[in-house]
């Protein structure tokens, strides 16, 4: 009788201890993650800063004055702005349908008109 109560008590204590342990373990993991948060926040902030600086550098390079001087150089002399009538505007869905590999047939290009997809 007494040994039966003792066994049941032992089982309860074991289960209780297991849950307590897993709860504490979870708490520890959470705390560990929380401890990483400030560092990660700082890293994200630093990445954002670098991003903004890179964005600025890219814009500096894409300065239209630079691009115009590049366009005037011999290397790009063959390029020209297309006339409006040479630009065909097709809807995005149509453009995707047109370029689907299954429906595409090997046909010779009929026109050299550039096609620009827009939304």
């Amino acid at each position: 009788m007494i040994s039966g109560v003792f066994l049941r008590l032992l089982a309860c204590l074991t289960i209780f201890s297991f849950f307590i342990y897993s709860y504490l373990d979870k708490q520890n993991s959470c705390t560990e993650l929380k401890m990483h948060l400030p560092k990660l926040t700082k890293e994200i902030q630093a990445i954002n800063e670098v991003n903004a600086n890179l964005q600025y550098q890219i814009e500096c390079f894409e300065n239209p004055q630079n691009l115009l001087s590049l366009a005037g150089s011999q290397q790009y002399a063959h390029l020209k702005f297309p006339f409006m009538e040479e630009v065909l505007t097709v809807k995005e869905g149509l453009a995707l349908h047109y370029s689907a590999p299954k429906e595409r047939k090997a046909e010779p290009a009929k026109s050299k008109t550039p096609i620009v997809a827009t939304n």
Binding site: E59, E62, M84, V87, L88, T89, V116, T118, N119
Partner: peptide
Amino acid sequence: KKGHPEKAQP
């Protein structure tokens, strides 16, 4: 420009 959608340029 017709047919030349460009990204926003600040």
